[in-house]
Write a protein that binds this DNA or RNA. Structure first.
Length: 194
DNA sequence: CGGCTTTGACCTGCGC
DNA sequence: GCGCAGGTCAAAGCCG
């Protein structure tokens, strides 16, 4: 299953930003605030929010480096390449570009695949997922980077209205960590699954 | 048997 | 208005 890549407690390979709350109920808001700061306080309505309207624009944002945060951890790179408010009621949209052999990052939530589509200018198909939790309308798009297949572009749309069904930390359940992941100490949370 | 994936069809938005 | 591309639906099949 997918783990929450923005939550370092769930995915130690995720290059996390310490300022960003790990709370799954508010994380994309925090990311949005953080990226606004990175973007020099650009106008939210006309500038950075418009940068991710399509995969092409996602790549533009990535290459321009005008929005986003990149760092590195154990040879696994995860780059936040853009955030925008969704036109839908679902909320914000956040795109990650992650160097991973796995097609789908395990983010702790349970996703159901509802579509697969080949996209123009990309040899790799795009997969569409919905959060399988009842009443939660969060969607996720996953596709391989057409320019570098070692990267996976994951786009989250919306905000979860529930806690992760798999919120566990490695000091309680180390078996949950996939092969190849590097464990990272959890200093601020205790298990919610007890 | 229930839940999930697959996949073709359909819908919608956008550019020309 | 038309065509294309992206996104979603839903039926069928698979698997535990």
């Amino acid at each position: 299953m997918d783990r929450f890549p923005e939550n370092p407690n769930l995915n130690p390979n995720y290059t996390h930003l310490p300022e960003i709350a790990a709370d799954p109920l508010s994380w994309d808001f925090e990311l949005w605030e953080y990226l606004n700061m990175l973007d020099g306080g650009a106008d939210q309505d006309s500038t950075s929010q418009q940068r991710i309207a399509s995969s092409e624009k996602i790549m533009d944002a990535s290459s321009a480096g005008s929005i986003g945060a990149t760092s590195r951890n154990n040879d696994i790179r995860c780059q936040i390449i853009g955030v925008k408010k969704s036109k839908m009621d679902a909320g914000h949209r956040v795109a990650f570009r992650t160097q991973s052999e796995l097609d789908v990052m395990d983010d702790g939530f349970k996703w159901r695949k509802y579509g697969k589509k080949s996209v123009k200018n990309s040899p790799n198909p795009r997969n569409y997922y919905k959060c399988s939790s009842g009443g939660c309308n969060v969607k996720k798009r996953v596709e391989r980077d057409g320019e570098d297949a070692s990267y996976v572009i994951t786009t989250y749309e919306g905000v979860h209205n529930h806690e992760s069904p798999c919120v566990v930390y490695y000091n309680q359940t180390p078996l949950m960590v996939p092969t190849g992941w590097t464990l990272q100490a959890n200093s601020s949370h205790s298990s919610s699954s007890s």
